[in-house]
Nucleic acid binder design. Sequence first.
DNA 1: AGGGCAATTCGGAAAATTCCCCGCCTGCCT
DNA 2: AGGCAGGCGGGGAATTTTCCGAATTGCCCT
Lengths: 217, 217
Amino acid sequence: MDKLRVLLVDDHSLVRAGIRALLETMARVEIVGEASSGRAAIELVRAHRPDIVLIDIAMDDMDGLTATTAIAAEHRAVKVIILSMHDTGDFFDQALRCGARGYLLKDAAVAELEMALSAVERGDVYLSPAVSRHVVGNLLARRAGEERPAAVLTPRQNEILQLIGNGRSTKEIARELELSVKTVEAHRAQIMERLGVRDIANLLLEAARRGLIALGR
Amino acid sequence: MDKLRVLLVDDHSLVRAGIRALLETMARVEIVGEASSGRAAIELVRAHRPDIVLIDIAMDDMDGLTATTAIAAEHRAVKVIILSMHDTGDFFDQALRCGARGYLLKDAAVAELEMALSAVERGDVYLSPAVSRHVVGNLLARRAGEERPAAVLTPRQNEILQLIGNGRSTKEIARELELSVKTVEAHRAQIMERLGVRDIANLLLEAARRGLIALGR
DNA sequence: AGGGCAATTCGGAAAATTCCCCGCCTGCCT
DNA sequence: AGGCAGGCGGGGAATTTTCCGAATTGCCCT
């Protein structure tokens, strides 16, 4: 049960210090170095051969992904954990392709950091739960190809489309918007006409295809 | 910061007792009930409305996935975490399609259990790291393989759901399958019942969420 | 062998929704 | 002025959905 030799990389020294403090509370962790740039990180990895590199994804001189790629390619044994401030998880797959073994959100809990460290140590890949959710969302929603004919809807029509996309019935929408059922029906009919569909089912399908409504929340 | 009301479901009483002991060490957790079968679990969920259901994936009378489906469909607010002894993660996607919000391996660390609980509480999806690795493996391998429709529906029901997802009307489906309109309606009604929705729009939305149908082509 | 049960198949009647045609405002643009 | 699009609704016919029930088949269990 050796110590985990960690290299910390972040160009914001304050953030770096904070994370360093966190890491120092963990008994098994030993910080072997800090870097404030991707270039410096690559040098330090060569010099110290850490077990794990914690690296910010967004830095000035060289972005974290590029540095990750270089490090992962040069040292197979070094596990790279990406720190990201994006909760969208938009970069996580890119990060993993670059050879990263973990993807942590900066607002993650301390416990998460510990788990990420031990997970990558034993060869697992660690994703922040919020990111996992995103993965799963993609997996379930299967929105691969990006194409958007983007039909133009009036504000009112779009408002009603959103409610339909939330599963509201015509009656519910009428109540919610304080309109007559007839009016909602009229709007919906116009939406369907513009999207070239003839029933609610295809309205949802077409709207989803065009990205007008979001599914799989 | 209320307590987390948890229902524990496992048909092995010894295992159940062990997990219960674990949960009782967690300050925020309150165990509102135990069940040893899927059927009983469904009843207890109705009675106690827990925040979270911890359920074994493999049980005798009714498998955990079926129970999960029923619970998730009936109570949107109840978060289901699957306990699995398979480290392969083979079932995790099926579990998520069934409405589970978490997938935990039985050999997971205690810290993982706590993380899973708080993750699903705040709406995230939690996957065991080993499972995440599996997901990522699939993702990196550029999987093009098609999905299995998941066993929550009968073959006939699924067949009809696919046609609905393709935008066919009830009448068209009846013609296509050489059935009476009434029959198609009956099937559709049963599908809606199983998915816990009350109209076509929500049927599509829910089916899409569960990955039973593909949108966006 | 018989009972139970899920899956599949329909019907009738009633309720709900949708569809089609129409009128009435209010702006805005030519 | 006139025209036209967006927004709002009514009436009534047409269609669909819902809510009951029910027959058949095949499978599992005792």
